[in-house]
Design a binder for these strands. Structure first.
Length: 212
DNA sequence: ACCCAGGGTCATA
DNA sequence: TATGACCATGGG
C-alpha cells in the first residue's frame, strides 16, 4: 500500500470517529499565533486561561503586547506556565511581526520562505511555525507533534527517531497540498490523543489504532 | 506525591 | 550531532 493510501485510511478512521474539529480554536489569526507560542509543551486548558487574561486586559494585539512590561505580560500569561520564557518569546515574535508589516507584509511570501523567516524568530521552532503557517496564514504545511509521532509509531509506520522535517515530508509528499485537509488531520490526531482508552471493545482508540 | 501537557533553546562533550 | 538541563502552571 502506498503512503498516500495509508495516510488517507488513517484520516478516514479519525474523521469517522470524531467528526469535524473546527480548528484552530481562536477568534482571529493573531490569536492563533499567540496561542501557538503559549501552548508549547503545555495543556490547552491552561493556555485558554492565559488567552482570556490577555483579552480581558485588552492586550491581545500587536500594540499592547509591545507596550506591556515584561512583568505585567508575565502576570497575564502566568497560567500557561513557563511565563518568563514565553513572555520573551511573545515579545520576540510580536516585534518581528510588526517589523515585517504584519499580515499584509507577509502574505505575499511563498510558503517555504515564510516558514524560514518564522524559524528565525527566537522561541519559534518547527511545530510552532507550522501551527502559525497552517492555521493563521492558511498555508498547506503539515504540523507534526508528539501525538503524530506516537500514532505513527503505534501503527508501526515509523521507528520514532525520524526528524521533524522527515515526518513533515512524509505527509506532504504523500498528500496533495490541501489546507482544509491538513488543518483537520492534525486536529483529529490531537483529539484522538486526548481521548482516553477504556480498553473496551467499543473503544474508539482501538478502532483507529488497529492494524491497517 | 507523582506525572504529564498541542516545544524550544542553550550549554556541554 | 547528540544528549541533558531548563523553563512552570494546573489537572489527573
Amino acid at each position: 500500500m502506498s503512503n498516500r493510501s495509508i495516510l488517507l485510511k488513517i484520516y478516514r478512521r479519525l474523521s469517522k470517529c470524531y467528526g469535524l474539529q473546527h480548528w484552530w480554536p481562536a477568534d482571529t489569526p493573531f490569536e492563533v499565533m499567540v496561542g501557538a507560542i503559549l501552548t508549547q509543551n503545555t495543556s490547552w486548558v491552561n493556555v485558554e486561561k492565559a488567552i482570556n487574561n490577555l483579552k480581558e486586559a485588552n492586550a491581545l494585539n500587536v500594540h499592547a503586547l509591545i507596550e506591556l512590561s515584561d512583568e505585567n505580560l508575565a502576570k497575564l500569561i502566568r497560567p500557561s506556565g513557563y511565563f518568563n520564557l514565553k513572555t520573551k518569546r511573545l515579545k520576540h515574535f510580536v516585534k518581528w511581526f510588526k517589523t515585517e508589516g504584519r499580515f499584509n507584509g507577509l502574505k505575499s511570501a511563498d510558503d517555504e520562505s515564510l516558514r524560514k523567516r518564522l524559524l528565525e524568530v527566537n522561541g519559534i521552532g518547527p511545530e510552532t511555525a507550522d501551527d502559525i503557517l497552517l492555521y493563521a496564514f492558511e498555508r498547506p504545511v503539515f504540523v507534526i507533534d508528539t501525538y503524530t509521532r506516537r500514532l505513527l509509531m503505534t501503527l508501526n509506520l515509523i521507528s520514532g527517531d525520524e526528524s521533524y522535517e522527515t515526518l513533515r515530508q512524509f505527509f506532504q509528499s504523500a498528500l496533495k497540498p490541501d489546507v482544509g485537509l491538513f488543518k483537520e488531520y492534525h486536529a483529529l490526531i490531537v483529539r484522538h490523543a486526548k481521548e482516553k482508552c477504556t480498553q473496551q471493545k467499543s473503544c474508539l482508540h482501538c478502532k483507529v489504532e488497529s492494524p491497517l
